[in-house]
Amino acid sequence: MNLTELQNKLLAAARRNPPDSQVPYAFEKRIMARLAAAPKPSEWLAWTRALWFGAAACVAVAVLASVWPVQPTDDDDDSFSAGVEQNILASVDDFDNVW
């Protein structure tokens, strides 16, 4: 059996037989009734969802902010604080020397 020919033949058959576009009787009435019966999205529900999303984002940021400072850094904290202290008190040291 020539499969390429069979494939072409069957696809040609599908092209030659397009599906029916007939719409059932009063279908539009059914759609309109369904749309009218569908619950309308509540404004409060939208606000509640938005606030929950906001709250979840805030919690995530808070957790990240609390975890971040705990992580050890490569910098030497002692030398950094000593450097800051030395710079701030440098003028006081000079003042002592003057007297």
Partner: peptide
Amino acid sequence: PASFEPLVVKYSPRVFATARRYARRESEVE
């Protein structure tokens, strides 16, 4: 919302033809 009905009437044949390409049973198409 009543203004939606003419759009349903106008375009439903095309939507039905498309749906019938993928679903065999008429209940599924609907």
